[in-house]
Design a protein around this nucleic acid. Structure first.
Lengths: 330, 330
DNA sequence: ACGGCTGCCGAAACACTTTCGATAGAGATC
DNA sequence: GATCTCTATCGAAAGTGTTTCGGCAGCCGT
């Protein structure tokens, strides 16, 4: 059980194997200039002596941090799944803004070979520090527009917002509410601007009373839906900023005695796996979350290995997924 | 950008700071015998020279693997959230049974300080290898009963199955179908045995036609529900082995034109966050997934630090959560 | 037979880490 | 005030493992 009870040194192994110390070191590190027979023999002696490395082996694949603000959403799991499909060892950490300590500093000095930061608020100062450090970093869905020195991955949120709203307009809706995420989130603003653009093109004025903000979770959608559904001039459709919010809208509609899509059309954003399972199945705008994670992983891998990045900013395409929660207004 | 472009050595730093090389090393490693003033000065010189350690810093917290078979379910996210709350650095890996390579071997030689294995099939040989290695391992929800040498964390699945079924019986149901997970999973068998025990106590015979198995996901519940709902003597209630399966049952019921809970009561297992959001909100048996993850993390931490484990096997309590998907049969 | 070429290995240089003894300054004691 | 611990701090030296580089076989073609 005791790890340090007279652990054998490389010198001991080398003597036992009848080779030089550097050769043993090379075997341990998988270097190329060792004859297969020698390698096998040394490996066997290492096993016999139960050799444990003094310094932890540097892993075959780069060890990188993936920083979430919270692990509270299937959204994050999709991203994570994508990242783990890249050629990386993924350490999951949650660093809420409020948590103690300077997490950017911890990231830089944490000894990882890189980091992926998911939907976090990076101040200009943080970005400069990250840029100044040697630590490769890729940001997914940045809250604020990242400076040119920080590579980032996102989705075509504006197009997605446009597509969602045009879908509702084509169905014949004119009073369309939008429930965005937190007001200052870049992705949220882009979706709402897409909503605005669609209304503009259709010649529909934007009613500020139908433009709400809430957190991206169930609660946010539920609360804001209650507000807009209580309006005298109730909307006939709601564009929610996330699928989770959309589920909250569904619940608010149910509690208000409104049938979906009969009395109210609801469209979400993300296309989480469970969007297909709600009743009615949720019309939504697909965001390729796993692909975004995988892309970020690949970019980070390139940064670590020194390959040149094709571009600092990648936006993956969103796509309208029509299901059963949207229909013509009655 | 280039990592290895003439990085400063400790000797250079030492010279620039006017101290000896070992002193710089001590500052880097946070050793105690350095005067605060000296430490600050050296630290500043290190920063000025943008020093990056050659060998990655050994992390302050133990670096452990968390092995999933797949990252395809909110279930896994809940577990993961719990584990990350322990005092550990968590590397997420997915090792499907089918994936190439000997993942147990990779685990042992992977250089981690420990591992948590989630719902994996560990053969007796694997267990012996893990026991023989120095690598501390904790298993969450083992597929097979683990041997005494492998610590494990689970939930009171039998009690949960009992509680779920008794809930349905108390409501007046007599024909109760059960859709378990894969037939050989320990947790699934325990839940079904709980179901059997409840029927026995109520003097209701077990109808083999009402006992189905499917994968733990939406598909499994959907497919098996289609089978039992097509029976001439249709059940009035379904106990699903997981919430995801229960969602599949809800969909099958909807497609069959059955209202829930009017025509069919449905109860799930897990209490995922979205169980509250389905329509109707899902009655289910709560499994404290995050707590299980945290408990496994704590046990692993104890194993790593050498503290004695109180027990090799922990089962956390499940609890019935009545919501709106169960009611008296019509 | 000879020259070039390549694969394999170890001596030596390197990059740290750790141990341990030296030293100086602060109190404590006489 | 003189001296005597005693501790905090530091670096010399030894230890551990990695990397570079030169050398030496054996192999091949000429």
């Amino acid at each position: 059980m005791t790890q340090h009870a007279n652990r054998p040194t490389l010198a001991v192994i080398a003597a036992a194997a009848g080779v030089s110390l550097p050769t043993v070191s090379k075997v341990l590190n998988g270097k190329q200039d060792v004859a297969p027979a020698t390698r096998a023999h040394v490996q066997q002696v290492l096993d016999q002596h139960n050799y444990v490395p003094l310094t932890p082996r540097s892993p075959a694949r780069p060890l990188v941090d993936v920083v979430f603000t919270a692990l509270d959403s299937p959204w994050g799991m999709e991203i994570l799944r994508g990242v783990t499909e890249a050629d990386l060892e993924v350490v999951v950490t949650t660093r809420s803004r409020s948590s103690a300590g300077d997490w950017v500093q911890e990231l830089i000095t944490g000894g990882r070979q890189g980091a992926i930061v998911v939907t976090s608020r990076l101040t200009a100062a943080d970005q400069r520090r990250l840029g100044g450090s040697e630590l490769p970093v890729v940001v997914i869905d940045p809250v604020d527009m990242p400076g040119p020195e920080v590579p980032s991955v996102g989705a075509t949120n504006w197009s997605g917002g446009l597509a969602a709203t045009e879908h509702l307009i084509e169905l014949g809706h004119r009073r369309i509410a939008v429930i965005g995420g937190p007001e200052d989130y870049l992705c949220s603003r882009a979706r709402i601007d897409g909503y605005r653009a669609a209304l503009d093109r259709a010649g529909i004025p934007v009613d500020p009373a139908l433009l709400r903000h809430g957190d991206f979770h169930h609660e946010g959608g539920y609360e804001q839906a209650q507000v807009v559904l209580a309006l005298a001039d109730r909307p006939t459709a709601v564009f929610a900023g996330s699928d989770e919010q959309a589920f909250g809208v569904l619940e608010a509609a149910r509690q208000a005695g409104l049938s979906v899509p009969g009395d109210l059309s609801v469209i979400g954003f993300d296309d989480l796996p469970m969007a297909r399972w709600s009743s009615p199945p949720l019309t939504t705008v697909r965001q390729p979350l796993a692909d975004m994670g995988r892309m970020a992983g690949r970019m980070l891998h390139d940064l670590i290995t020194g390959a040149r990045l094709d571009t600092q900013r990648v936006e993956l395409a969103t796509q309208l997924v029509p299901r059963a929660s949207t229909a013509r207004p009655s």
